[in-house]
């Protein structure tokens, strides 16, 4: 029936356990009292209108608050059993978490170096190994065919859609345990979006994915379970299908999915 994501029941395969998470920017509360579990190897969708706290949630998972002076995070987040507030080497944590933000960022390096950056930071030096990683990640991000002949040109000068796929390739090059995708399809055409979505379904075998999306149908296509954020609160956590066959508990969730607001 309706799964409200109760903490204890499925503890063994919980990847990320979030408890009473509250995020503030100065006096503005971006997210209030969120408690949820993200399970191993699932695609966890988060839907909701703009400014409902979705992106802040992802930033908290990645401990980006350390780089943002006015961002304050309360509550606890456990990642694979580690309380991320107590981890001593945050860089090691972030290396395990791949992030794709809505605005594409091609770093001002060559396309090759963009994708090879994370492996290099991890100490991969051999050209042959890097070549393999770069090709695999670009393939998966559906970019390889377009750029394989100009890997030396600047990643920051690609088109918006290409840069977005480059960003995805970069996130994959980290070989992450957890992949955070924030409205990744905004700058990408529908055909490419479908190709990437296919890749994500495949990737589910290896990584846990958190998918923030403003497209309800995308959540339906991909997410196993979905949370609905509204006005800084988590209103609903349920199997994605539950939103569409009326099994969700909060009437606002169904209204949103059916397009009555947002």
């Amino acid at each position: 029936m309706v799964d409200v994501g109760s903490p204890a029941s499925v503890a063994s395969d919980v990847k990320v356990a979030v408890r009473d998470l509250t995020i503030r920017y100065g006096s503005h509360v971006a997210l209030r009292d969120v408690t949820l579990d993200i399970r191993e190897n699932e695609i966890f969708g988060i839907i909701g209108p703009a400014n409902s706290g979705k992106t802040s949630f992802l930033r908290a998972l990645n401990r980006m608050d350390t780089f943002t002076t006015e961002m304050a995070v309360d509550g606890s987040i456990e990642f694979a059993g580690h309380d991320i507030n107590k981890i001593k080497n945050l860089y090691a944590l972030r290396k395990r978490i791949g992030v794709v933000f809505p605005l594409p960022v091609g770093l001002p390096l060559s396309i090759y170096d963009n994708v090879a950056l994370a492996p290099r930071l991890n100490g991969v030096r051999k050209r042959s190994e890097l070549d393999v990683i770069v090709e695999r990640c670009l393939q998966r991000a559906a970019l390889w065919d377009e750029v394989k002949d100009r890997l030396k040109s600047l990643g920051s000068l690609l088109s918006g859609g290409q840069q977005q796929r480059l960003t995805i390739a970069r996130a994959l090059s980290q070989d992450p345990d957890l992949l955070l995708l924030d409205e990744f399809s905004i700058a990408v055409d529908p055909v490419t979006t479908m190709r990437i979505e296919d890749v994500l379904k495949e990737l589910k075998q290896e990584v846990t994915i958190v998918l923030v999306t403003n497209l309800v149908q995308q959540a339906r296509r991909l997410a196993d379970r979905t949370a609905f954020f509204l006005m800084s609160e988590c209103v609903e956590i349920a199997e994605t299908e539950a939103y569409f066959d009326g099994r969700v508990q909060d009437p606002r969730s169904r209204d949103y999915v059916e397009g009555r607001f947002g």
């Binding site: 694979a80 080497n89 345990d177």
Partner: peptide, 13 residues
């Protein structure tokens, strides 16, 4: 599967 992917997690401390 889940065990395996947890085990590739390096020591975060």
């Amino acid at each position: 599967m889940s065990r395996e992917s947890t085990s590739k997690l390096p020591n975060l401390d």
